[in-house]
């Protein structure tokens, strides 16, 4: 558990995640209030990484659920292992008939059998999927529900019980309540709007592109081979590029790739030629690259 906002920043930094005070505050609050966090923001600003690093920092197990269209409860919550149930009844056929041999009428036999039916709907035949795993986990875990916006909206309904009460109701068994409430993080890229019910149960965190200082720190910690001079020059450039009217602005992950590429090429200063050659690391649209090339005199100093 984190002690205060600063503690969150320090702990995450140990695991190479540099976060702003805003992010840390929300995470700290979510832990204290035991509420899930819905994280939104442009692609590549480290939404998923945040979940991973929290798990590392708190030494908790990370249970990750990647959402996609058509994801259903059988893949997210739990599933009965039907084949195993069948197999077991086959194997136990003799045992069953032996057990039922003393009963005279059909009614008695059914009564006798139904006394035992719990056996077939027990934990033994239940396959836990990520969400049940997180709830039933013997130690506190981090449950990362990634790209929730990719799932169907019915799926949100399955989540509501977990998000507010940290429990799952399985009709055949009953309600499983979490011994240790997992820390739940949902990420979304805004492909669609989440329902109000879901949003109400979560704290909301919007991660935007980082400030220069923060991004510089991120590069330094993730790509130390990129010297401090090159790093600061790189960041200045990327921030200048973000000012341009682009179709898709480069985000942190792209900056990281660029830093890695440039240091692999053995650059010590950001030369205009080598920068232009490697622009495709940060810009994904041809027209964007063209634009930057056109304005290269203002953007690149050397």
């Amino acid at each position: 558990m984190f002690d205060n906002v600063q503690h969150v920043i320090d702990q995450l930094e140990k695991h190479k995640y540099i976060c702003s005070r805003d992010i840390a505050t929300t995470i700290y609050l979510a832990m204290k209030m035991q509420k899930p966090v819905l994280v939104e923001g442009p692609a590549g600003v480290g939404k998923t990484d945040l979940g991973k690093c929290i798990a590392l920092a708190l030494n908790m197990e990370l249970i990750r659920l990647q959402c996609y269209e058509g994801l259903d409860e059988a893949k997210a919550l739990y599933e009965w292992e039907y084949a195993k149930q069948l197999l077991y009844t086959q194997i136990l056929k003799d045992k069953l008939s032996q057990m039922l041999s003393n009963e005279d009428t059909l009614t008695d036999a059914i009564n006798k059998l139904s006394e035992e039916e719990d056996v077939f709907f027990s934990d033994k035949f239940l396959i836990p999927r990520p969400i049940l795993k997180a709830v039933a986990s013997p130690s506190p875990a981090v449950l990362l529900i990634d790209e929730i916006d990719k799932s169907d909206s019915e799926f949100e309904a399955f989540l509501l019980e977990v998000l507010s009460d940290y429990q799952i109701t399985i009709p055949e068994i009953g309600t499983i309540v979490a011994k240790h409430k997992p820390f739940v993080l949902l990420t979304s890229n805004n492909a669609r709007e989440m329902s109000d019910a879901l949003k109400r149960r979560c704290l909301h965190l919007y991660i935007d592109f980082p400030s220069k200082e923060l991004e510089e720190k991120i590069i330094q910690i993730k790509v130390p081979e990129c010297g401090s001079y090159l790093t600061s020059e790189l960041i200045e450039t990327v921030h200048r590029i973000r000012q341009l009217p682009l179709k898709k602005e480069p985000s942190i992950s792209e900056t990281l790739d660029w830093a890695k590429a440039l240091s692999l090429l053995g650059c010590e200063v950001l030369k205009k030629e080598s920068a232009i050659d490697t622009l495709n690391f940060i810009l994904k649209y041809e027209k964007d690259i063209e634009l930057v090339k056109k304005k290269s005199d203002d953007i690149f100093i050397h």
Partner: peptide
């Protein structure tokens, strides 16, 4: 949260109240 940390204070309000970015 500490009230004298303005950043944290603001973030607290925004993350609890604002659900639509």
């Amino acid at each position: 949260v500490e009230f004298n940390d303005k950043n944290a204070f603001k973030q607290t309000l925004s993350s609890t109240l604002i659900k639509d970015y």
